[in-house]
Design a binder for these strands. Structure first.
Lengths: 227, 227
DNA sequence: ACGTTTTTGTGATTTTCATCACATAAGTTT
DNA sequence: AAACTTATGTGATGAAAATCACAAAAACGT
């Protein structure tokens, strides 16, 4: 393993709240049991209702957490980027995965087995408190999505979805907040439960009104005037 | 306290997953620190964004967990009946309450202070595991609501909301499942983010199609053919 | 650089609900 | 029981967004 990669891995691991309580030694140990795996774009990582035996950490790329509707449409519940983790729920309560996770780009992912998860995390009181705090965050996020979906107009829905993503994956700069997920209109539509065409029209309107700007790399800048 | 009431209290306490791991003595102890309080219909128990210092258990009646929209409309996230508990999140991560809770009927509620909560629950590893499992359940429920709200037609939304309530508050009998919450059409509308009129029309259609039946006490019977 | 696939842009049409406007019914209060 | 209040039933109308149907542009693969 390259030195720089090793350092990156260390940095990412240390930023996972679950692992915040582990000692340097423990992290070193941990790194040896973690498996790195590559998922090409559009590859499914796991399917809703699957029995799940791993927790995942995104190293690079991004993944979407989705519910698939009967009609083939999918609803995005969350998008995770480098440094985010997912799949912990099935490990915690032993039930099946509540949603499907798919790679949105070519994505490198770190995998931790249930055995190691139990070994390193479920024995330590402090780690359990961390897990609880993470679940609370997830719950608050789920309720926020909920709120967004019950907004009456398409415009509000798109606006709030953008704000939600800015909160989770936003980088502030002097002009506003940049959503670094490089989302397509279809992605935003799947997030806000609207049609792609409606999202296209609204995004253009936001641009025309000077509320947002699409940067060269397709990232979305929410200007200060946004909202 | 009347004997019968004491027994009821005991039974309810023992059915709360948080307390499942406590010994008989501990429960006895616990009962002395719990305060019982009455909330009349429509009384707000706590407000979104409030700093919250208690956990609550419903003894009788029912409460709704809601997000209030800017336009005065409210969106129901969950309904809790006797034996259910709520308000635990703010105690767990110290952040403000993520939603408002209101009594839907005259409701008796048991209150546990943060101090007792910490004292009895946050020290025990087994209790922490219980809390984690409860949070996972909440998260799965929140995602189900999410799924319902992203369904494209009003009919599906109402159908799935009814199924959700049946799952949480349903009593099976030989004809199907009875939702024992005595909900108004407005409640269902607030749950599914539809207008009251649309819900009325759809409920009548379900009745006419023989899928559901409104019992004398206003409870809703989902017949076996429902779905 | 060329063809292919994916994404975006935009008008025309249709559908579905929300809204409005009452009527009726059922429950509550006094 | 009369007077209110709350809940339900139902038609008519309108608005918002889905759908349909392409065109154009960008991104990607080889």
């Amino acid at each position: 393993m390259k030195k720089s990669k090793k350092l990156l891995l260390d940095k990412i691991i240390k930023n996972i709240p679950f692992f915040a309580c582990l000692s340097g030694e423990q992290i070193e140990e941990l790194r040896h049991v973690l498996i790195e795996k590559h998922f090409p774009r559009n590859k499914i990582i796991f399917v809703e209702e699957d029995t799940q035996n791993y927790m995942y950490v995104v190293l690079s790329g991004k993944v979407k957490v989705v519910h698939a509707g009967a009609d083939g449409k999918e609803h995005i519940l969350a998008v995770h980027k480098a440094g985010d983790f997912f799949g912990e729920m099935a490990l915690l309560d032993g039930k099946t995965a509540p949603a499907t996770v798919t790679a949105m780009d070519d994505t490198d992912i770190l995998i931790m087995s249930k055995r190691d998860f139990d070994e390193y995390l479920l024995k330590d009181n402090k780690a359990l408190m961390e897990i609880i705090s993470v679940l609370c965050t997830r719950l608050r996020e789920a309720w926020m999505v909920n709120k967004v979906l019950s907004l009456p107009t398409a415009k509000e829905r798109v606006r709030e979805v953008l704000k939600l993503m800015a909160m989770h994956s936003g980088v502030k700069d002097n002009r506003g907040t940049v959503i670094t997920l490089r989302l397509t209109h279809q992605d935003i539509a799947d997030y806000s439960s609207l049609s792609r065409e409606t999202v296209t029209r609204l995004m253009n309107k936001f641009v025309k009104d000077g509320k947002i700007e699409i940067l060269d790399d397709k990232n979305i800048l929410l200007k200060h005037s946004f909202q």
